[in-house]
Structure formats: C-alpha cells, structure tokens
C-alpha cells in the first residue's frame, strides 16, 4: 500500500497539510501526519518513527522550519543524518521549507484576506516586502501585524 508519512515539528503544520494535501495528493496514496511537540521532540523521536514504521512501502517527508538558524543547509544535513540512522534507504526526503509556517500564509495574502474577513490585504502582495514571502524573517509577527493579532 502506498503511503506518505509526514514528520512535522508541531500541530499547526499538521493543520495546514490536512487542508492542503487533499487538493493535490493522489487519493490512492494514503497519508499520515505525525505532529511532534517542537523541533527537539521531532529530532529525538524521528529515527525511531521511521525505523519502526510498519508499512514497508511507506515514504517519509521530514518538514522543519528554518526559524532563526542562519544556514538552512546545516539543519537539513543534520536531519538527513538522522534519517540515515533509520536504515530505510531512499525512502525519505528532508525539507526545510520556510522560516516559519506563517511564510506560507504570507505568500497568499488574498486567502488570508478571505478567511479572516479583512480588506485590502491582497493588494499588498505586489509590494516589494511581500513578493517573496520567505525572505521575511519573522513571518509570524508580520502575519499578526497584518491581521491585527487575529
């Protein structure tokens, strides 16, 4: 049985993928989203989770935020090293996808505008600041500011 297993650092990432995945993941592929309690918890338990996973044809994606680490490649290499300890060759991917989860939301301000019932947000996507949302270093704060803390 084909299965895609996401190892995530927190429940908010799970919430996002739960609504996002059904829109583009083949419905024949089963999915499991494992949310850990922060990055330390993720790094402590991920080897065991991958290693002991019962479905032999499962594939794994480890998703982590860059947060304030200056170089995302260091984070990625460390996570790849942990994956290698699980002895399941070529079944995993590591993605340090963004600074924080909120970077994704900043890249789609019109969606934020609609879901929060705000006005005038979508227009700002074209401004220099929001054109490349992953360059924003504290996207969580930025998003809170844009939505007045909602």
């Amino acid at each position: 049985m084909r299965e895609l297993v996401f190892l995530l650092e927190e429940a908010s990432a799970k919430a996002m993928l739960q609504s996002l995945l059904p829109r583009f993941l083949d419905a024949r592929i089963q999915q499991r989203l494992i949310a850990f309690e922060g990055k330390q918890d993720l790094e402590r338990q991920m080897v065991r989770r991958i290693k002991g996973y019962a479905n032999p044809s499962a594939r794994f994606i480890v998703l982590r935020d860059q947060d304030s680490t200056p170089d995302c490649r260091i984070v990625k290499n460390r996570l790849l090293g942990l994956c290698a300890q699980a002895n399941r060759q070529a079944t995993y991917l590591v993605r340090v996808a963004c600074h924080e989860l909120e970077s994704f939301y900043l890249a789609d301000l019109s969606a934020v505008e609609i879901s929060m019932g705000l006005t005038g947000l979508a227009r700002r996507q074209r401004s220099a600041r929001f054109r490349s949302s992953d360059q924003i270093e504290k996207p969580g704060l930025e998003l809170a500011r844009l939505t007045n803390g909602k």
């Binding site: 309690e37 065991r48 002991g52």
Partner: peptide, 21 residues
C-alpha cells in the same frame, strides 16, 4: 495493533504514540 507493537518492542512509550495519532 502491529504498528504500536513494533514501536513498543523498540522501546517506545505509548503516551507519545497516542499524542502522535
């Protein structure tokens, strides 16, 4: 449950497994 059994045989704890779904 095969999955829980496998993890437990490798020294896991069920509080974590429960929280992780």
């Amino acid at each position: 449950d095969e999955q829980i059994k496998t993890y437990m045989a490798d020294g896991d704890q069920m509080g974590f497994l429960w929280k992780q779904g």
